[in-house]
Amino acid sequence: MKANVFDTRHLLAFAALARLGSFTQAAQELFLTQSAISHAIKALEEQAGCRLFERSGRRVSLTQAGEQLLRHVDKILAEMKSARNGLEELSRWGHGRLRLGASTTACQYILPTVLREFKQSFPKCIISIDPGDHARQVELLQQNRIDLALMLEPAGLKDLAFVPLFVDEMRYLLAPVHAWARAGRVQRETLERETLILYNQTSYTFRLVKEYFQAEGLPLANFLELGSMEAIKELVKIGLGVGVLAPWVARAELAAGALVSLPLGRRKLRRRWGVAYLRGRRLTLGEETFVGLCQSVTTEFAGPDSAAA
């Protein structure tokens, strides 16, 4: 039974002999003996089931079958050379790839600063970003379609490792003219009449907020949900409702007095952000650098009392 795949060593000998037309010269180029070249060609012809060379004294020339095979062999060897060059390129400083996943919020407020710093150390690294919600990031990691995911901590998934970055606190964000802002506290008796503006109803954050309100016995019937943090903040500014957001996504507005932050209640709703990856994977230098930069950039994102969380 003939083998389905040609031996690479036989193909190298074949290509050298076809180009040089001499067993002696082919042997010298490949640092082999003439006998080794002869055995390689004989084995290749037996595997191919036909003669590949015509012998005329010390010179050889390709048969028609040999010419046809050479066209394929040239392509195969060119691909092999390209593959080797690509692997060598990866081993050089600053080269390689980084496949990232991140929530829409992380893409907008965290990644730009992190990647700007990262590109200074790894200028030739090819970076791809797959934005999506929590469930999609978990799926992409488990399918090995991304290397790292900047996301909220996945609960109960033993196949994922998680490097914590910071803990934030979900709070009410409201316009300065709102009655709660003027009173300096949330008036629970008026909560049922308020329109809450929440992030995407299919998101992990919406689920956390809904569970919190249910556990606290708070009404969550009158709400709007949007897929953009910027849109939520703008609606809050013009008084169309009260947002439930983490203050770090509105740091500029809070500092300027355009928004006011108040706690949800006596019990805090906290979330843990970090970088997740498949457990058991050894992070590359580039990946470790990315995680370190995330830790540095998000130092100021933690909510009040987050150290105790």
Rank of each mutant, 00 (worst) to 15 (best):
L198Y: 07
P112V: 03
T63G: 03
S128E: 14
R92D: 02
A40G: 01
Q295F: 00
P247V: 08
L70A: 10
T298N: 06
R136Y: 12
A231W: 09
K42P: 00
E287Y: 02
I76G: 00
A26I: 06
V260F: 00
R193H: 09
L191R: 05
R97Y: 12
L165D: 02
A27P: 02
G49Q: 06
H95E: 13
A215F: 03
S121I: 13
F223D: 05
L87D: 11
L283I: 07
M170C: 05
A40T: 02
F31V: 14
L240V: 02
D74R: 15
E216S: 10
A40V: 06
G241C: 02
A106V: 13
E211K: 11
E67C: 14
S228D: 15
L264H: 07
L283H: 01
A16K: 10
A256L: 07
L224Y: 14
A48Y: 05
Q120N: 13
L226M: 13
R51N: 10
R136W: 08
G96C: 05
A181R: 00
R59E: 11
A181P: 03
I232G: 04
L208Y: 08
E288T: 13
Q142C: 10
P112A: 06
F14I: 05
R193D: 01
G241S: 03
L11D: 05
K2V: 13
T202Q: 15
R84W: 02
L12T: 09
L224I: 11
L259H: 04
R55I: 05
E88H: 12
S38L: 11
A43E: 12
M151W: 03
R279E: 12
G274Q: 10
L32T: 03
A27Y: 06
V236E: 01
G292R: 10
L191P: 01
E46I: 04
F53V: 06
L17F: 07
N200M: 03
E211R: 14
L245D: 06
L173P: 00
D168R: 01
L115M: 09
A106F: 12
L100R: 02
G292E: 03
T289C: 14
C294E: 01
L30T: 07
F223K: 07
A149T: 07
A149Q: 07
G86T: 04
G274V: 09
L283K: 06
